[in-house]
């Protein structure tokens, strides 16, 4: 448990540093690479909590597919150069920082309130592909219908992306 907790603190520091880089860096390509770092750290956290399938999907879908899409669009629109689009100026920066600080405080407060230490369940829940599959396709649970809806959503997403990005012939 000792090694576990040291690993957690190191990874959490890395994760927060990378997340700050996503926001602070002026170059969108570097923001994207920092976001890949955040996602890899989160994947390790998922594995550490026994959610193997979610951790693997995190790397494959987020760090693989979604970030490649981001980098592809950045390069397609030629935004990789040091960014001419500066951040917002004037009042919006302190307002955003203040609002986020309030948000962080309330989230942390709600989290600390909701997690009563006595409620922790000792039986570990495993997130292997087998367990996820049994839960997903169990007719007695709500996930099967959501799964079918998600397939329709992804189909609509694919068709919508093609329609949006096609060249108008006029």
């Amino acid at each position: 448990m000792q090694g576990n907790s040291i690993g957690f603190w190191i990874l959490a520091a890395l994760c927060i540093a990378a997340a700050v880089q996503v926001v602070a860096n002026r170059n969108p390509v570097r923001s994207a690479l920092a976001l890949v770092g955040v996602m890899c750290c989160l994947s390790v956290f998922y594995f550490a909590q026994g959610a193997e399938f979610v951790g693997a999907v995190q790397v494959i879908v987020y760090a693989g597919a979604i970030m490649v899409l981001f980098l592809f669009v950045i390069m397609l629109l030629n935004l990789g150069a040091p960014n001419p689009m500066m951040d917002r100026v004037g009042l919006s920066k302190p307002v955003a920082l203040l609002a986020s600080a309030v948000l962080l405080g309330s989230l942390a407060f709600a989290g600390a309130l909701k997690i009563a230490p006595g409620r922790a369940v000792k039986s570990p829940v495993s997130g292997t592909v087998q367990q996820i599959g049994y839960a997903l396709f169990d007719p007695g649970r709500p996930w099967l219908f959501a799964f079918e809806l998600t397939s329709v959503l992804l189909l609509v997403g694919v068709v919508g992306a093609v329609v949006l990005a096609q060249r108008r012939s006029d």
Partner: peptide, 9 residues
């Protein structure tokens, strides 16, 4: 919260 800051600025 870091993500919210980014969306704001």
């Amino acid at each position: 919260a870091i993500g919210a800051v980014g969306v704001g600025i």
